[in-house]
Design a protein around this nucleic acid. Structure first.
Lengths: 344, 344
DNA sequence: AAAAACCATTAAACCGTTTTAATTGACCAA
DNA sequence: TTGGTCAATTAAAACGGTTTAATGGTTTTT
């Protein structure tokens, strides 16, 4: 089961490994017939030259960075990746994308992969909470592997580019209050996500800074999976008397919001006439929706761009740079899923 | 500007490189104080051990495959990637994703990257047309690099997993004909895509197999970019008399269809009451749309899965396997954007 | 016919690490 | 004092290729 090397090929072909190497690299110094012969032997043995070994000697300086996102199917992350890509390309870097699917094992695997394959640095949407785990990810202290995080992990000494989730949701809630809504609820995300917690926090803060009073019932467990949030929304409203319906819902993210709107349609509840909906993220499909979604926009491309910028700066520096933490601003994008409540 | 190596560190720290290596790898054979000292020197010099070299010696057999898609923001491709991922994981492979953005240079860069970094094989949605270019991509004859294509390139001797685009569109058109539509048009994709051509072909075939007659005006240049197709759709209808409106549109893909539906709404044309719309691909968001889209479903996950299966089989085989070409079936998914035309 | 030039091939050095075997020095027991 | 252990370190081999300089055999030039 031993790997076939260039020596094996050389031996079988009755030539030196230098010659084999020459044909692999298309050098024109080798006689056509030996070339053909070697090619034949290579094919017979199904010889695949080992990339890292080739790489080592000639020191191919191909510049590339990696990014680990949580879900390749969520447009929010692919938009960030696009931002990374745009900036990185302009600096001559290729970017390779991996998706952890919220699985810490994958996260570990990929970070190991990166450091092992001469990827020059990485941008990570981290899953784990602990500082130690993250540092462990890149064997940080040992390898000096440059990376930047897309979420602030409490107490970590690392580069971070992120948005202020708490503030974002607070902004959304305040906008609804300004529109005259008083019966506002929050449809919360998946239980174990740090985003879910931050957004619940933001929701509460908004109330504590207003004259309205917060009640735990205002937080509804909905999740962000498409099927799940659809079902749970239906259930939620089925359990309620019409007069107890909220007049506005702050959603965990845009995908959930889309799903909720679909459920409301099924229930014959009109958006925004009966209920205002506000999303979060501003993914591409939020504006394509026939009732364009009011949402809190996270500057996805800019996040990617900024992260790439910091990363590449670190990669190219010959000295260890001080840690940077940047928080980008979110923006309320008012479209058609929310409306001012007229008192009667 | 020379790279800092372990020897430089060793020299500066006054130890042998073996010792430095030991601290990098967290061996417990090194005295705490030397360890600390070496760590300090490493930090000072900002030493980053070269991955490929580490890899070469200890021969880390981390199994990973790559995939090159055309557009990371189009859910069709990320769904394929998900299929790849699912199968690959089950076989212990990690998958890394890259996006060529329809740019041949990127495609070349990534394939080179893969073969150079000991990625074991690749799945590619190819941009280029020529057999030679594709073979060149992996220096095919030389490196025996295993790969599978997601589109059939005419005359190529390579593994392919794809769908029959022509047949798919034909199916769509026939369905509309069966529904009684006679004024059917095709909103074509971006001019230089091979998909665009295949789909136009399919549209014509459907006509040649029916009693209706094809006219070149039935092919409308719309493109697939969201903004562009929105605008062009509006223009198209503005130029037409109401009585000349088609009663059905076969769209290039679902994203275009979504965009078209949005434009129709703007124009106060109802879907499906005034015009039936049929998409292509069945991306995730097609069914979330309030008028769920009738479309030709390409089995995205299955495509990914099958491609991964063939790829891994080739990777793990010690002999060169014969080329496989598999064509997966598409399926008409009837939802609410099309309706039967009642004669009056 | 000898020298020069050329072609194809090979042997050896090299890339930057890890690993193994050998070495050194300190400590302890007899 | 001698020898044996043990802990810490080092020198050298190894990983699997590429590249360079040397080699030997032909052909061409003078």
């Amino acid at each position: 089961m031993k790997r076939i090397t260039i020596v094996d090929v050389a031996k079988k072909a009755g030539v030196s490994k230098g010659t084999v190497s020459a044909v692999i690299n298309g050098k024109n110094t080798v006689k056509p017939e030996t070339r053909e012969h070697i090619l034949k032997v290579m094919k017979e043995m199904n010889f695949r030259p080992k990339g890292v070994a080739r790489n080592l000697k000639n020191g191919h300086q191909d510049k590339s960075i990696g990014i680990i996102i949580k879900d390749i199917n969520y447009p929010f992350y692919t938009a960030i990746a696009t931002g990374v890509k745009e900036y990185a390309s302009s600096k001559g870097y290729s970017v390779i994308i991996t998706s952890s699917e919220n699985n810490h094992e994958s996260e570990k695997k990929f970070s190991h992969l990166f450091s092992t394959k001469d990827i020059k640095g990485a941008i990570i949407a981290p899953i784990v909470e602990g500082t130690a785990e993250i540092e462990h990810l890149f064997n940080l202290k040992m390898l000096n592997f440059p990376f930047v995080l897309l979420e602030d992990v409490k107490g970590i000494q690392a580069n971070v580019v992120a948005i202020d989730n708490l503030k974002a949701i607070k902004r959304a809630v305040k906008y609804l209050m300004d529109c005259g809504h008083t019966k506002i609820v929050h449809f919360a995300g998946p239980p174990h996500s740090s985003h879910t917690q931050e957004r619940i926090e933001g929701f509460r803060h908004a109330f504590s800074e207003s004259t309205l009073v917060f009640h735990p019932d205002m937080i509804v467990q909905i999740g962000s999976d498409y099927e799940e949030s659809y079902k749970k929304t239906i259930e939620y409203f089925k359990k309620l008397n019409k007069e107890d319906y909220p007049t506005a819902i702050v959603c965990f993210n845009d995908l959930q919001a889309l799903s909720v709107m679909l459920a409301l349609k099924e229930l014959n509840i009109r958006v925004p006439d009966d209920i205002s909906i506000i999303g979060n993220d501003d993914i591409f499909y939020a504006k394509i929706y026939p009732v364009p979604l009011t949402t809190i926009r996270a500057p996805q491309r800019e996040i990617g761009k900024k992260a790439a910028e910091i990363l590449i700066k670190n990669i190219e520096s010959s000295t260890l740079l001080p840690v940077e933490k940047v928080v980008l601003e979110t923006e309320l994008v008012i479209r058609e899923s929310t409306k001012v409540l007229v008192r009667n």
